[in-house]
């Protein structure tokens, strides 16, 4: 058993807000009706948050990172398999770094 108090606090906070989003929609629908624009806003958030995470990482990764990112996206789109896409991306980074002498 190894739990850091700050980590525990973070996890409990994450759990609380997540459960809030799970029950909040049903709870709200008993009381209000969402506008179309609010619905649209919510629907864009998962994608834009992920884009915001990825963009700086790709720039940081240089040409190898960019190439591996493209390959990962293609495999994910074709196969729909998260694990396979990750293996291809990581494998490409590993092999290119090895070939080009650890850039």
């Amino acid at each position: 058993m190894q739990i850091d108090p700050t980590v525990l606090l973070t996890i409990l906070g994450m759990a609380l807000v997540t459960y809030g989003t799970r029950v909040g929609g049903l709870w709200l629908m008993d009381r209000v009706t969402l506008s179309k624009r609010m619905e649209a806003w919510l629907s864009y958030i998962p994608g834009t948050v992920l884009v915001a995470i990825i963009a700086p990482e790709i720039i940081k990764g240089g040409p190898i990172g960019a190439l591996a990112a493209l390959a990962t996206a293609l495999v994910a789109a074709r196969s729909g398999n998260l694990l396979l896409a990750m293996i291809v991306g990581v494998g490409l980074v590993w092999s290119l770094r090895t070939l080009l002498g650890w850039v």
């Binding site: 990482e57 990112a69 996206a73 789109a77 729909g80 896409a85 990750m86 990581v90 980074v93």
Partner: peptide, 20 residues
């Protein structure tokens, strides 16, 4: 082993799945 790229790869794959 290139595993520092694993995070980015997973996020990219998740993002592809979110494309509408």
């Amino acid at each position: 082993l290139g595993l520092d790229f694993a995070f980015t790869a997973v996020f990219i794959a998740l993002l592809v799945g979110l494309w509408k």
